[in-house]
Amino acid sequence: MDAVLIIQSLISGIMMGMVYALLSVGFSLTWGVMHVIHISHAAFGLLGAYLAYSLLEYFGMDPVVSAAVSVPLLFIVACGVYQLLIKPITKAKEVIVASMILTFGLAIILENVMVLIWKADPRVLTPTYASGALIVGPFYFQYPHLVGFGLSIVGITAIYLFLKKTYTGMAVRAAWQQPEAAQLYGVNLYRISMITFALAVSTAGAGGISLALLNSFEPHSHNLWLIYLFLVVIVGGVGNVIGTAIAGLLIGVITGLAMAFLPYQWVNLVTFGLLMIFLIFRPHGLFKQGV
C-alpha cells in the first residue's frame, strides 16, 4: 500500500475526528449532566452551518468571523428552547425517553425549516481561500480543512477550560456528580441545566460550521451526523470531554482510512459496525464517564 496515501488519510482522519469531537462534546454534556439525549443536537449544528453559509453568501463574512455571530445567537435560541420545551420534560419520570421523543420531533421541524429556507440542494462553504492548499512535501492540506480543524481545537479547548476553570463550569460538573449536594451549596439546577444545554447547542453550531468547511451538507445531513455523535459519545464515555476528543480522533482516523481503502458504500458499514460492537462489548466506552 502507498505510504503517502496512508499518512494523508490518517491526517484527514485526525482533522475530521477533531470536528466530530467538537460536534459531540455538547451532546455528551447534555446527556451526562441533564440526562437529556438531545436528538436535534446535530440539526442545530446544521443550522450553524447554514447560518455560516448565508452570512458568507450575502455579507461575505468569513465562516470563522460569522461563528462569532451565529454561536452566541444559537446560545440565545437554545435558552429559549430549554425554557419552552426541555425544562418541562426534565420533571418527567423517564427523562431520557421523553427527551429523545421530544427532540426527535424538534429535529424533524428544524430539518423542514431548513428545507424551506435553504432548499434541499447540497451546499458547500466557499470562503475566499476555498481552493487554496498548504503543500508539505507529498502531502496537501486544503485551507478550509485546516480552518475547520483549527476551529474545532479552539472549541474543544474552550469547553474544557470552561468546565475546569470557571465557577459555572465547576457547578456543571458538581451538578452531574452529586446534584443534591450541589443544590445544598447554592447551585440552581435549572439555571445550570439551561447553561449546559445552551452551551451544548452553541458548540454544536461551531462544530457544524467546522464540518461544513470539510464536507458538503444538506437539510437531512444531521441524521448521519447523529450516528457519529452517538458513536463518539459511547466510545468516549458520556460527559467526558477528553474522552470525547480522543474518541472523535479515533473514529475520524478509522473512517478516514476506511474512506481511502474501502469502497464508499462500506464506510457507513464500518461505523455502524463499530457502534454495534461497542454497544455489545463496551457500552460504557473506552474511558470513564464523567464531567
Partner: peptide, 12 residues
Amino acid sequence: QVPEGRKLFPAM
C-alpha cells in the same frame, strides 16, 4: 447542611 453520606463531588 452537611448531608448524610457526605455527598462530596467524587471526581473533583
